[in-house]
Simulated scan of single mutants.
Amino acid sequence: MGTLRFVHPTALLVAALLTIGMNTASAHPHVWVTAASELIYASDGSISGVRHAWTFDDMFSTYALQGIESKTKGVYTREELASLAQTNVESLKEFGFFTFAKADGKKEKFLEPVDYYLEHKDGALVLHFTLPFKTPFKTRQLALEVFDPSFFVDFSLRKQDPIRLVGAPAACTFAIQRPNDGSAAAQKLNEQTFASGENSNYGAMFANKVTVDCP
Rank of each mutant, 00 (worst) to 15 (best):
H8V: 05
T10Q: 13
A11M: 11
L12G: 01
A16P: 01
A16C: 08
L17Y: 08
L17T: 10
L18T: 03
T19K: 10
I20C: 00
I20P: 00
G21P: 12
M22V: 11
M22P: 01
N23A: 13
A25W: 02
S26V: 13
H28S: 06
H28R: 10
P29A: 05
H30F: 07
H30D: 09
W32E: 13
V33Q: 04
V33A: 12
V33D: 02
T34P: 02
T34Y: 00
T34N: 14
A35V: 03
A35F: 00
A36R: 15
S37Y: 04
S37N: 11
S37P: 00
E38F: 00
E38T: 10
E38N: 12
I40Q: 10
I40C: 10
I40H: 05
Y41G: 04
D44M: 09
G45T: 09
I47F: 07
I47L: 15
I47A: 06
V50C: 03
V50A: 05
V50S: 06
H52A: 01
H52K: 06
A53D: 05
A53G: 11
W54T: 03
T55I: 08
F56L: 15
F56A: 03
D57H: 01
F60Q: 01
F60K: 00
S61Y: 06
S61V: 08
S61W: 03
Y63I: 12
